[in-house]
Computed example of a mutant assay.
Amino acid sequence: MTEAREPIASPREWALWTSFFPMEAELWQWLSRRLRDDADLSEADWQVLDALGNTPDHALRAFELAARISFSKSRLHQHAGRMIARGLLHQNPAAEDGRGTVLGLTPEGLAHFRQAQIHRARHIREALVEVLTTEELDTLIDISTKIRRNLGHLGDAATPS
């Protein structure tokens, strides 16, 4: 005898799965390609530059930077080493205790970040802003915030501020 089973997902859930998730992946692939082509940066480079470029002294202790961009300590250490070799970052012992490491933007890194901001803003406009109405953008912002807040409650991501 064959046992009747409930569907794994409703038609609406499958519609979400087959529209939203591929779009999200394609969007990030497109944004990543454009950032690489226009600013010679990877998404990981951008995350580091964006986090440091938006702090008062353009520097953070390594553990704070890793937490802010959701990198493991080893991933940040390896990636920062490559960015230091490219002249985008500098590394110094923490002044407070000498045990920790502070990563900061070099003048070249800050200039590269500022130029990349221009490209990233244009890319976002091309991919999202120009194709959606003002109301759709507001709805997308509301939905994104709601999902992120829910993930924070589930323990999978930081709750947005």
Score class of each variant (00 low, 15 high):
residue 25 A to E: 14
residue 34 R to L: 13
residue 39 A to P: 13
residue 114 R to W: 06
residue 112 H to Q: 05
residue 28 W to C: 06
residue 31 L to C: 11
residue 68 R to F: 00
residue 92 N to R: 15
residue 116 A to V: 09
residue 45 D to Q: 08
residue 99 R to D: 10
residue 115 Q to H: 15
residue 40 D to P: 08
residue 91 Q to S: 11
residue 48 V to P: 04
residue 108 E to R: 06
residue 24 E to H: 00
residue 44 A to W: 04
residue 104 G to A: 05
residue 100 G to W: 07
residue 83 M to G: 08
residue 123 H to C: 15
residue 34 R to Y: 09
residue 109 G to I: 02
residue 89 L to F: 05
residue 77 H to L: 09
residue 127 A to L: 15
residue 42 S to V: 04
residue 76 L to Q: 11
residue 110 L to G: 03
residue 41 L to G: 08
residue 53 G to Q: 10
residue 121 A to R: 13
residue 23 M to A: 11
residue 125 R to E: 15
residue 76 L to G: 10
residue 59 A to Y: 12
residue 27 L to G: 01
residue 70 S to H: 12
residue 38 D to A: 14
residue 72 S to T: 13
residue 67 A to E: 08
residue 81 G to A: 02
residue 49 L to W: 11
residue 99 R to P: 04
residue 64 E to D: 04
residue 70 S to W: 06
residue 37 D to I: 06
residue 48 V to Q: 04
residue 98 G to A: 06
residue 77 H to Q: 11
residue 96 E to M: 10
residue 21 F to A: 08
residue 101 T to H: 03
residue 72 S to F: 10
residue 91 Q to C: 07
residue 97 D to V: 04
residue 128 L to M: 06
residue 49 L to F: 14
residue 41 L to V: 10
residue 101 T to D: 02
residue 131 V to T: 14
residue 116 A to C: 10
residue 116 A to P: 07
residue 60 L to N: 04
residue 82 R to I: 00
residue 101 T to E: 03
residue 75 R to G: 01
residue 50 D to P: 10
residue 26 E to W: 13
residue 76 L to C: 13
residue 29 Q to V: 07
residue 109 G to A: 09
residue 57 D to R: 14
residue 128 L to E: 01
residue 88 L to E: 12
residue 112 H to F: 00
residue 29 Q to N: 09
residue 85 A to V: 05
residue 90 H to E: 07
residue 123 H to N: 15
residue 58 H to V: 03
residue 74 S to F: 02
residue 100 G to M: 08
residue 77 H to I: 02
residue 94 A to D: 15
residue 131 V to Y: 04
residue 92 N to F: 12
residue 49 L to Q: 12
residue 70 S to M: 09
residue 132 L to T: 15
residue 21 F to C: 12
residue 97 D to R: 12
residue 33 R to K: 07
residue 127 A to R: 05
residue 58 H to P: 03
residue 102 V to A: 06
residue 70 S to I: 04
residue 66 A to M: 14
residue 92 N to Y: 12
residue 51 A to Y: 02
residue 30 W to A: 15
residue 108 E to A: 05
residue 84 I to Q: 02
residue 39 A to L: 12
residue 60 L to V: 07
residue 51 A to L: 02
residue 124 I to H: 13
residue 92 N to A: 12
residue 41 L to P: 05
residue 114 R to I: 07
residue 94 A to V: 11
residue 96 E to W: 04
residue 68 R to V: 00
residue 67 A to K: 15
residue 124 I to Q: 14
residue 90 H to T: 02
residue 31 L to H: 04
residue 34 R to I: 13
residue 63 F to I: 04
residue 95 A to H: 11
residue 96 E to C: 08
residue 51 A to D: 03
residue 84 I to F: 01
residue 79 H to V: 11
residue 59 A to N: 12
residue 29 Q to C: 07
residue 69 I to A: 10
residue 78 Q to I: 00
residue 132 L to S: 14
residue 29 Q to S: 11
residue 87 G to N: 05
residue 60 L to Y: 05
residue 86 R to P: 01
residue 67 A to W: 07
residue 23 M to W: 12
residue 70 S to L: 09
residue 127 A to K: 03
residue 128 L to V: 10
residue 24 E to M: 00
